[in-house]
Simulated scan of single mutants.
Amino acid sequence: MGILKSGALGPFRNKVGPLIGRRHMSQNLLLPLPHPSSKPATAKQLEAQEKLGLLSSFLNRIDKLVNPGFKAYTKHNSPVNAAFKYNYDHAFVKQGETFLLNYPKLVYSRGHILPPEGAALSSAGSKITFSWLPQNQSAYCQFSDKASFMVFNAVKEKGFVIILQHTVNRYAGSFELEVPKDFAGNPVHCYMSFSSADGKKQGDSLYVGEVVVA
């Protein structure tokens, strides 16, 4: 049953005849009813579906970082969709007949705040240490900028992600992050980014590297 909110000419929700009305991103949308195809999917369609599932699942799992990180690049879209569009062309590598995520190329945030310089990783005792070099202050590089970190363990079933936001300031030069003990021996993908102290301005996320948890 369709619901008319503002009379016969106003927006509506649900199904009315061959049309569907819905509200999305503050817009009233009028869409045709879907017509499922009886034809089997082509190889290209299956490939596109595989890529869609991989990247969408990853970005939705890290939406705490993506939502502020891509907020400035949305119009009539969500931050996750904006991140999907930005990442899609470089997000995959092919291993045999299977697509995998290209972790070093993935980006969860974009902006003018400068990324860390000389970022490096080390691991000992179920802890990962991020470190970075001092940088001269400027409009987009302040000692007070706050760091966010992400560690992704692709070895675990469906992947296991650790996210820490707005932890230490840029001046600290390092941050020690504890991971579960069963990460020992697993390679993990590590990322970080800076935002302004008030969180209103974001910077490009940086793939710091892969490290095996000691």
Rank of each mutant, 00 (worst) to 15 (best):
residue 64 K to E: 11
residue 64 K to I: 07
residue 65 L to F: 06
residue 66 V to R: 02
residue 66 V to D: 04
residue 66 V to K: 01
residue 67 N to H: 01
residue 67 N to Y: 00
residue 67 N to Q: 03
residue 67 N to I: 00
residue 68 P to K: 00
residue 68 P to R: 00
residue 69 G to R: 02
residue 71 K to Y: 02
residue 71 K to R: 09
residue 71 K to Q: 05
residue 71 K to N: 05
residue 71 K to F: 01
residue 71 K to M: 01
residue 72 A to M: 03
residue 72 A to V: 02
residue 72 A to W: 01
residue 72 A to G: 05
residue 73 Y to I: 05
residue 74 T to E: 02
residue 75 K to I: 08
residue 75 K to Y: 12
residue 75 K to H: 14
residue 75 K to W: 11
residue 75 K to V: 10
residue 75 K to C: 10
residue 75 K to S: 14
residue 76 H to A: 06
residue 76 H to C: 05
residue 76 H to G: 10
residue 76 H to D: 11
residue 77 N to E: 15
residue 77 N to D: 13
residue 77 N to K: 14
residue 77 N to S: 14
residue 77 N to P: 11
residue 78 S to Y: 02
residue 78 S to P: 06
residue 78 S to I: 03
residue 78 S to H: 03
residue 79 P to W: 00
residue 79 P to I: 00
residue 79 P to A: 00
residue 79 P to C: 01
residue 80 V to T: 07
residue 80 V to Q: 03
residue 81 N to Q: 04
residue 81 N to C: 02
residue 81 N to E: 04
residue 81 N to A: 04
residue 81 N to V: 04
residue 81 N to M: 03
residue 82 A to M: 04
residue 82 A to T: 09
residue 82 A to G: 09
residue 82 A to I: 05
residue 82 A to F: 04
residue 82 A to V: 04
residue 82 A to C: 06
residue 82 A to K: 05
residue 83 A to T: 07
residue 83 A to Q: 05
residue 83 A to L: 04
residue 83 A to N: 08
residue 84 F to G: 06
residue 84 F to I: 05
residue 84 F to K: 06
residue 84 F to T: 07
residue 85 K to G: 12
residue 85 K to P: 10
residue 86 Y to I: 07
residue 86 Y to F: 13
residue 86 Y to H: 14
residue 87 N to P: 14
residue 87 N to I: 07
residue 87 N to V: 08
residue 87 N to H: 10
residue 87 N to F: 08
residue 88 Y to Q: 09
residue 88 Y to F: 13
residue 88 Y to A: 06
residue 88 Y to M: 05
residue 88 Y to G: 11
residue 89 D to V: 10
residue 89 D to I: 08
residue 89 D to W: 08
residue 90 H to P: 13
residue 90 H to K: 15
residue 90 H to F: 15
residue 91 A to K: 11
residue 91 A to Y: 10
residue 92 F to C: 10
residue 92 F to A: 09
residue 92 F to I: 09
residue 92 F to V: 09
residue 92 F to G: 11
residue 92 F to M: 09
residue 93 V to E: 13
residue 93 V to K: 15
residue 93 V to D: 14
residue 93 V to R: 13
residue 93 V to F: 11
residue 93 V to A: 12
residue 93 V to W: 10
residue 94 K to F: 08
residue 94 K to G: 12
residue 94 K to V: 09
residue 94 K to C: 08
residue 95 Q to C: 13
residue 95 Q to M: 13
residue 95 Q to K: 15
residue 95 Q to F: 11
residue 95 Q to I: 12
residue 95 Q to H: 15
residue 95 Q to N: 14
residue 95 Q to G: 15
residue 96 G to H: 07
residue 96 G to T: 08
residue 96 G to R: 06
residue 96 G to M: 04
residue 97 E to N: 15
residue 97 E to R: 15
residue 97 E to A: 14
residue 97 E to S: 14
residue 98 T to F: 09
residue 98 T to K: 15
residue 99 F to D: 10
residue 99 F to T: 12
residue 99 F to W: 14
